[in-house]
């Protein structure tokens, strides 16, 4: 009992945010429920992003009804590789990644050969809501396949590593690189076994990582060190993330981005309830940083100033950058 109180105090002193605090002080306070569809539906997110001039993977087409499935041929005729996603899928379910064509059939990233009929069946499943939360009818999205930048080759196992930045009212607060592992089946979700690696906001250099709630320094599959890697185009990521506040209007979001080897930073999706493991990856509590941002917001509000995304990025980088090096 006494040990627990000690743990509580220590965590609290380091500003570690718990689920209750995240829900009460951030998600409920800054995220208007009516805006959730914007982030829950990847198609709406994408349309909003395109309008706002934010880079996203190019959309090839949408399939909304069973009749439209026959349009698939037209949609993909110019593309050798593409991705089919449910618009409201969760946890990376129902995503089909086609890497190439093979004698009238298709080849997935894992090398499996599937027929056109199988793709159509998958589309039908998506439409009936097999992968959507709550089993509601859904739409299928066919989009550009992201090819991860070669920089990640040494510290990633299959799949596409992505970068998550938590953004409070447009201010980037904390960043993490998510690396798929063999255990996560190439998916970049931490609770499925992917690694989270903290990223210094100012420089884009990776810190140590977290895997299944533990701290780690090496990728379990490749055994290469995950820290000290310089992410290219880091300022681009920061600006993308900061601009997402204007895009969706939600004040507390996790922005998931990828680094494409040709197109640079792209936004994959937004999350209205970002997880808390990012704190372990960065070895820092979120609450300390969010409080600083909130203080800044109050200060600016008193002056009646609204900062641009560039100014917000600068503020965050000055304040939260240079995370003290690990001993």
């Amino acid at each position: 009992m006494f040990g627990l109180i000690k743990t509580w105090k220590a965590l609290s002193a380091r500003g570690i945010m718990g689920i209750n605090r995240r829900n009460a002080d951030y998600v409920l306070k800054y995220n208007k429920r009516s805006l959730y569809p914007i982030v829950d539906d990847k198609i709406i997110t994408k349309e909003r992003a395109i309008e706002a001039g934010i880079h996203v993977p190019e959309m090839y087409g949408i399939i909304e009804t069973e009749q439209e499935i026959s349009k698939l041929h037209d949609i993909i005729k110019d593309h050798n590789d593409f991705v089919i996603k449910p618009a409201q899928g969760a946890g990376g379910d129902g995503i089909l990644v086609i890497a190439d064509r093979f004698e009238g059939r298709y080849k997935t990233v894992s090398g499996r050969i599937i027929s056109h009929d199988e793709i159509e069946h998958q589309l039908s499943n998506i439409l009936t809501g097999l992968y959507s939360l709550g089993g509601l009818r859904d739409r299928a999205l066919i989009e550009y396949r992201v090819t991860p930048d070669p920089i990640f080759k040494s510290i990633s196992y299959e799949g596409v590593p992505d970068i998550r930045i938590i953004v409070l009212m447009g201010y980037p607060v904390m960043a993490m690189l998510r690396l798929p592992t063999r255990q996560s089946n190439g998916k970049a979700n931490l609770h499925q076994g992917a690694i989270g690696v903290g990223v210094d906001l100012a420089t884009g250099i990776t810190l140590r990582g977290t895997w299944l709630n533990n701290k780690i320094t090496k990728h379990p599959d490749t055994t290469n060190a995950v820290d000290g890697v310089q992410l290219p185009n880091w300022d681009g990521f920061m600006k993308l993330a900061a601009g997402c506040y204007e895009l969706c209007g939600l004040g507390y979001i996790g922005v998931d981005m990828v680094l494409d080897q040709d197109k640079g930073p792209l936004i994959l999706e937004l999350n209205a309830r970002p997880g808390l493991n990012i704190q372990i990856a960065n070895d820092t509590g979120l609450t300390l940083r969010t409080h600083q941002v909130e203080a800044r917001l109050a200060e600016l509000k008193a002056k009646g100033i609204q900062e641009t995304p560039e100014e917000r990025v600068k503020f965050s980088q000055e304040l939260f950058g240079h995370v003290p090096a690990h001993d």
Partner: peptide, 15 residues
């Protein structure tokens, strides 16, 4: 807003 009991164990890595 306090921690949940299980979070005390979840974030043990910090200590």
């Amino acid at each position: 807003r306090g921690y949940r009991l299980t979070e005390l164990f979840r974030f043990k890595a910090f200590l």
